[in-house]
Design a protein around this nucleic acid. Structure first.
Lengths: 338, 338
DNA sequence: CTGTTAGCGCATTCAT
DNA sequence: ATGAATGCGCTAACAG
């Protein structure tokens, strides 16, 4: 354990050099004579010296921390992204500050403020609903990466998943399996300035149907709120509408699980009576009864990409918008219609 | 947005006082004349002043951050705890630094080192496997709270869930429902110096059986690794052992889900043929087919308690070991044996 | 290449 | 109660 009191000065003495030399070898900045460098390193390890981060930050203006603002801590997809960020930052000199905006604009704003006050060197937003203008302003002062959120004027700083394509493919798969009447459980999004993931999924669904010459039946599209519970309700609504359908495409796995439960309660078999697909490939998708056909968001990879990108940004390197794709994961919740 | 350059000096001028006075009102330390205090506050808001955290920390020695080291980012129970910590810290002046030890001793050690270097004012471990001696040493220099981990010599600093009692109750419930041959899926723990949650669950299970006059049948106790997959394997092993059993108690929900899938594959009905209970009450437990009987770990509450405790500790107040209890959540995965 | 010096922005004695 | 003076530990010009 570092002895609380060892400063750069102590090791300067120990190594018979000046403190600037010490600082130099530690910061790996300009060149230092090999022997002196050795002496310094030696002293550092002997005294188990640990630089004072605050002093460093105060003097340099760099905090060596990157702030991460998520929403919805506990959501599998988001947590996967966070995990990826942590992974991507491992081994670097950066630490990460976390905050949970909980989809509340005020909380998010406060978290942002706290991070700005802490002079974070970079900022990663995982989702979020701060206005575009605020984000642009922030991005102007601090390296910024947005994951799972797209803002037109910050396109290069966005890392996201191609929801449209995946939803299109998924719907296409259902069509290929012979389904014509495909219900969709979507969700209402309130984030005006953001093109939401869920609405893109709806778009992919609608496009696939259209391309197949099947008009979208508004009666077969119901709204949930992304939680399991709402998936159950959605099924009830669908059933009440008396419109025949042979498959359900839920905009996320959680709602698919909710739908599954409602069907179970009604004694409707999956996939024998109704086929079901979700979105996200949460771990449970593989262990639901029956295992759920879905599509995986490479969340960990996206998190790692975000970490790499923010590091590049801090480094002054340019970054490019990254769009992740994925393939359908076929499991047993879909039956072929004869 | 704070103008990058406003220091305490600027507002001192603006308010016609010295910087020490400004510092005083900001730090709410010693008394300041009401009018001067007003003037300062006025200037602060007019200039939108934001104190430099590094300078504060450097001068005061306090970092106003608390470090959180978790394992297994993404696990519902742990994430719940993290969420609780974030919640409990909200509104305070503390921010939280996160790191994921991933159950790897080296990574955990590094994370700890990074936090110590950053002079965190408090440390919260969520799980972890650093040796007791290290933990004690750390606790000696920094306020420390352990969640979901118990260390004898740091008993007061531990916040945990009464796994034994819950497992006992759960087993008792199965017994009350008429089950006599109850299998248990546990997990092997390698953390020598820690009394693991899972082994306590096993102990509760064993004790309940013993109290009911039923000897524990080693053939009915199999080991998994807490992941879903291993729950499936466990069932296969159980089935192979040819020992009759009417119920399965999995040490966590994830393994219960895995078990459920294996049973499904075998065409064994739940609860008609076999009853099943899990542990943790993950969200999915309520939406599995059929909904799973389990017991909830109040993880968010534990996280909040941890946050409150660490703040008290920093404040110099004593804290007491907190043990959380919980009740069985009865759902449909258990049938009464006639 | 290396030592000296001046801050970084603020908390805190110390006098007043 | 309040102002002036020190220093926290380090980085970054600045001279040699």
């Amino acid at each position: 354990m570092p002895n609380r009191k060892i400063t750069i000065e102590d090791i300067a003495q120990q190594a018979n050099v000046s403190i600037s030399t010490v600082s130099r070898v530690l910061r790996k900045s300009s060149g230092v004579a090999a022997d002196k460098r050795e002496a310094v390193l030696q002293a550092v390890s002997e005294l188990d010296y640990r630089p004072n981060v605050f002093a460093q930050s105060l003097a340099s203006g760099q905090s060596m921390t990157i702030g991460v603002i998520t929403q919805n801590f506990g959501s599998p997809v988001y947590d996967g992204i966070l995990q990826g960020i942590l992974l991507g930052l491992e081994g670097t000199d950066y630490s990460s500050l976390f905050a949970d905006g909980r989809w509340d604009k005020t909380i998010e704003q406060n978290a942002l403020q706290a991070f700005v006050d802490r002079r974070v060197d970079g900022l990663i937003f995982v989702g979020g609903q701060l206005s575009e203008s605020i984000m642009v302003e922030v991005g102007h002062k601090t390296p910024l990466i947005l994951v799972a959120r797209t803002i037109g004027s910050l396109a290069e700083n966005c890392i996201h998943f191609d929801n449209f394509q995946a939803a299109y493919d998924l719907t296409r798969y259902l069509l290929d399996m012979g389904h014509r009447n495909i219900a969709h459980i979507t969700a209402k999004m309130h984030y005006q300035e953001t093109v939401s993931d869920v609405s893109q999924r709806y778009a992919g669904y609608a496009q696939a149907l259209t391309d197949a010459g099947i008009p979208v039946d508004p009666q077969l599209v119901v709204e949930g709120n992304l939680m399991q519970q709402s998936g159950s309700l959605a099924v009830e609504m669908l059933l009440m509408a008396k419109r025949p359908f042979s498959a359900i495409f839920a905009a996320n796995d959680q709602m698919a699980f909710g739908a599954r439960l409602a069907l179970y309660r009604r004694g409707i078999r999956v996939p024998d009576d109704i086929s079901l697909v979700g979105f996200d490939d949460e771990i449970m998708a593989a262990f639901s009864i029956p295992p759920l056909t879905t599509v995986r968001q490479p969340s960990v990879e996206m998190g790692q990409a975000a970490a790499a990108a923010i590091l590049d940004l801090i480094d002054g390197k340019p970054v490019a918008n990254q769009i992740f794709r994925s393939k359908i994961i076929v499991r047993e919740s879909v039956a072929r219609l004869r």
